[in-house]
Write a protein that binds this DNA or RNA. Structure first.
Lengths: 322, 322
DNA sequence: GCCAATCTTGCATCCGTATGCAAGGCAAGC
DNA sequence: GCTTGCCTTGCATACGGATGCAAGATTGGC
């Protein structure tokens, strides 16, 4: 101790607190010497603010999510928030995890495509605290969400298929009941009809995985009659592409292929996959801004922000000269 | 309030505390009604135990890490620990992040291949707290680590190349200065020499990425004289494989290819990549056990646990009948 | 039925920081 | 030189739960 009160120390480490610059300097310097660090826990207790955001994730297998999480956690770090990770997969004790979410008094909860969480669970988990859904819209809950404009993307793909002269197109769903899939699927089918194209197949992969895409591609081949396939995301598309090539089908000559997300793999020369890019940067920025300005706080009216994406045309839908 | 003391409430939620079962029951039930949850923050403060583990990560792009992190966080959840994520990449304010690690009083720190952290930084970040390195050995620090037996894996690959009749082999490093790479590289080169095989190329990719693998493969092709390539990890190998195929090289006929990690992609039919599997389950189990039994606590002698892996033979090194 | 041992419960205090309030110090204005 | 007002600082208390200690309640043994 160097003869100052505990209050002084507290103020020395509180930006903007009422303390003389010299005293602050003196305290901070001395703290370095004795290796003192303010205890964040105690601070949380008295301020009832934790500077921790709970991030609920459910699918780390799809590279889109690690990429999103990485950016998100960095953006949060930049404004002094830490990320407490809640991994919800089959086999996790849901109730225990969500109650932890409450016990830890996180300042906000970000739920990333937690398809596993049902409406009531979601409501319970986020009750009375700031919350944002990313990549999923709230159905029967009053939650804010940030989501890519799935319909826009699906229409862009349909338009693009039409523009490159395809007329018999197929759609491969991931989990068909997810809001994400429904938006993409409905918009795609509608636009396909508007163009007078034929929907030659509509397959539910039952999961967003490479193997589901592969299986779906084989199914479509077995039926014939398809010259373009829109897979609900890039991982499905990767599996589909490989399956087509394996069967000797030329892409894009015989069948054009498109995905959704623009994961890094889509740009690999081997896949060279046309896809609709989810603007991760912007999604993250918007979500973080919502947390910062409190627009997702419990009292507020929930906001739904749809972020525009961008069609990335690559070789898998190149125009084929007959 | 239902006429009981605050102590009673505390004890009701503390397993093993001295309290009559009926009273506990009553309190817990009432708590449900009024939606009371024990405040973990307050508990941390008085117990000086946070039940939070800091996880320091630096590379979410390589699918191996998301897979590891997912398993790890689930294993921690199972024993009641939460994961606070610290994402360290180029551009993050290292000092601020690491000081957060201290302020938050995490019970333990798990550092996952933080190649970015130098020895001194590492020491400072983990000083006085339980810490484990995963997938990297401590060099000049006194830290416990859990690591796959890289040398074993590299030797297994060399042996396997030899067994399938390859004699002019190349090695492609990721980041050549990382301990992981050095172990794999040295063991591979040594064993190659022991078998009397020729090391036809030794390339440093400068990063563990698809494109680095691709570039390396082109380099090797340009030199000729190689009939098997060992890439330091699967992502490199994937890039390499695609590059070879792109140039019309047959795998495994012309050149056999092996990777390291056994990420899920390695098993995809398109890659069908021989690789050395890092036993994620076991690595996670061991790390979590070390935290649970306190063997990585500050006072203890650091433990180094090398976990045995397994060679997974796939098509990329199939035996070719002449 | 009485005493001792055990089990429950409440009281008081502590964890480390934040902050309202009041007291003291200092500068400007007359 | 005195008053007014702002700037600093310390005091006291709050945040919500954990826990040692002691008092009260219960049980068993004789």
């Amino acid at each position: 101790m160097l003869g100052v009160s505990q209050s002084a120390v507290s103020r020395a480490f509180t930006p903007g607190a009422s303390i003389a610059p010299e005293l602050r300097e003196k305290i901070v310097r001395f703290a370095e010497d004795v290796d003192y660090h303010p205890n964040a826990i105690a601070s949380m207790l008295s301020k009832s603010r934790t500077n921790i955001v709970g991030i609920v994730i459910s699918d780390m297998q799809n590279p889109f999510y690690p990429a999103l999480i990485e950016q998100l956690s960095r953006a949060l770090q930049r404004i002094g928030l830490q990320s407490l990770m809640f991994n919800i997969t089959k086999g996790t004790n849901l109730e225990e995890q969500l109650s932890a979410l409450r016990r830890y008094n996180v300042d906000a909860v970000i739920i990333i495509s937690a398809t596993i969480l049902s409406g009531p669970t979601l409501r319970w988990a986020t009750e009375g605290r700031a919350a944002i859904l990313i990549n999923r819209v709230a159905e029967d809950t009053e939650l804010s969400c940030v989501i890519c404009d799935n319909a826009e993307g699906a229409r862009a793909i349909a338009d693009h298929f039409h523009a490159i002269g395809r007329r018999r197109v197929a759609y491969v769903a991931g989990l068909s009941h997810t809001t994400t899939n429904r938006e993409r699927q409905n918009a795609f089918i509608t636009r396909v009809a508007e163009h007078g194209m034929t929907l030659s197949a509509l397959i539910d992969g039952n999961e967003y995985s490479y193997y589901a895409g592969r299986t779906a591609a084989f199914d479509i081949l077995a039926r014939g009659e398809t010259d373009a396939i829109f897979f609900a995301n890039d991982i499905l598309a990767a599996g589909g592409l490989d399956a087509l090539k394996e069967r000797g089908v030329s892409v894009p000559e015989d069948i054009a292929v498109a995905g959704f997300d623009d994961i890094s793999m889509a740009a690999w020369p081997h896949y060279d996959l046309t896809t609709f890019r989810q603007p991760i940067d912007m999604i993250v920025d918007v979500a973080v801004a919502m947390i910062e300005n409190g627009s997702c706080a419990p009292g507020q009216r929930p906001t739904i922000r749809r972020i525009s994406g961008e069609l990335v045309k690559r070789g898998s839908t190149a125009i084929v000269d007959p």
